[in-house]
Each structure stands twice: as C-alpha cells, then as structure tokens.
Amino acid sequence: MASKNDPFEFRDFDETGDLLIPSNDAVTISIDDEDLKPKRARSDVGFTQDAADEEPLIGDDREELLAGKKKSAPFWTFEYYQKFFDIETHHVKERILGSMVPWPGKNFIQVYLRKNPDLYGPFWICTTLVFVIAISGNVSNFLVHFGNPDFKYTPEFRKVSIAATAIFSYAWLVPLGLWGLLLWRSNKILNLVSYSFMEIVCVYGYSLSVYIPAVVLWIIQYEWLRWLSIAVALCLSGSVLVMTFWPALRDDHPKVVIATVSAILLLNALLAVGFKMYFFSQPGPGSVPVSVPVTKTTNGTSS
C-alpha cells in the first residue's frame, strides 16, 4: 500500500515543482529542493526499511490479518485453543532458531510472534526436554558404571515424573508471576509495551529449546564440558528473555528493573543447575548405591 502511494506523491510534487520553476526566482527553487530532498531521502529510507521488514514475513502478515478478523471464542470451546495452534512448520523453525540465537535489538515477541503466540512450541519443547533429560540422565548413569561388574543397570523411571513436574511448573508458573508483575507495574507506570500471558508463556517455552542440545551434550562424561554447555545455554536463553522483557520494564523504577531481571536470570540458572545437580550428579564409586536405599527406607517408615 505505502509503496504504491509514494510514487504518486512524488509525481505530484515534481509536477508542481516543474510548474513553479519557470515562474519563481532562485530562492524558492532552492527551498523547494530542500523540501524535496529530505522528503525523498526520508521516504526512501522508510520504504527500504519496510521492505526489509516485510519481505521475509509476508505470509505472517496475511495470517495476522486473517487472525484479527476471527471472532474470539470463549475459552471452554475447542476453537479457542485452535487459534494457539495456527502455525506452520517454518514458523516453528524460525521461532526455535530465534530463541537460540539472540540478536541485539531483535525482540523475540515483536519479531517472531507478531501477535500470534502459539502453544505448540512451548508444549512440545517442554515434553521433549522432559524425556531428553530423563533418558540422557539414565544413559549417563549407565556410562558412569559401565564396566563395573557389581553394578546392575536399572532404569529410573522416576526421573521422568520429576523432570516433568519441574519443567512444566517452571514454564507455566514463572510466566504467570511475570505477567502479574507486568500487569501491576503497567498500572502504576504508563507503559507502551505490554505483553499478553500467552506471549510470555510462548517466550518461556521457546527459551527452553536451547537446553535440549545442551542436555544431550551432558551425556559425555566431562565435567568441564557440562559446565561449559550450561554456561552457553544460560547466556543464550537468559539474554533472549531479558531482551524480550526489556522494553516492558525499561521505563520502570531502576530497583524494580534490577530485581525483575535478576529474578528472571536466577530462576533460569536455578533450573539449569538443578538439572545438572540432580540428574547428572557423579556419585562416588560404590558409595551412593548403598546410601540411597537406606534413606529411602527411612523415608518410607516415617511416612
């Protein structure tokens, strides 16, 4: 639309300029030129920026328009949830990549979600992470004791339920708290940027995706490699989260900003380090398999 209007405006302006040139003196011409040049330059810049923004994501725009036309269904109907699954394969790929590679100045919600948050990515990324952690925890436990004739490998299915509880509560409760906080703060301070609850859930879900390759790396029995991958994953997902929520927090009181950002980063770090400690702890050879049943039986008798 804008690209079609611009040439017409120019033609009008040029014609009037041409008409004015023979009748007026040099001063007015120079003013005209001055008026023209910045306008042209400005519109050129604006046009190229628009084009750069829109070209790769034209399909999204169309979908966004269509989504805007849809009536909002009440939350107990199937259609209400269907709109959170209104995505295609390439969107999911873009979003996962965007959550793994933080780009300075690129806000995840504004660049990738574009008012169309999905639940597909968060849900399946969390589920994948649950099983990847449980499976690779089991595999690394097996590798630790590999070659030890006394050790008898038994699958620890308990890890699945613990990982599921931890991950799903992180991916739902933290966004809930953050959403409440943003809502409360936006009442006190006029904020131009406000995020919906689904957008925050979506960001948190996708920010977990970087842990999937990291956890697979944890199978390898090198402590330094594990801590390195934790550090890298923390930096990537933490910076995506902070950069996403920065515009919403920016105008707030500095104390609140620092507290919120540090809480976001701390919870993120707590999750990653907790996984490392719980699922990939290196037991001393032979000592832990004896001690674990003892603690369990005492628990069982007391409860």
Binding site: T154, P155, E156, F157, R158, V292, P293
Partner: peptide, 8 residues
C-alpha cells in the same frame, strides 16, 4: 525395576 527401591 520391580524391586523396592528402583523405579522402573
């Protein structure tokens, strides 16, 4: 896995 302590 059916033994007491290991959760298979």
């Amino acid at each position: 896995a059916d033994s007491d302590d290991q959760g298979g």
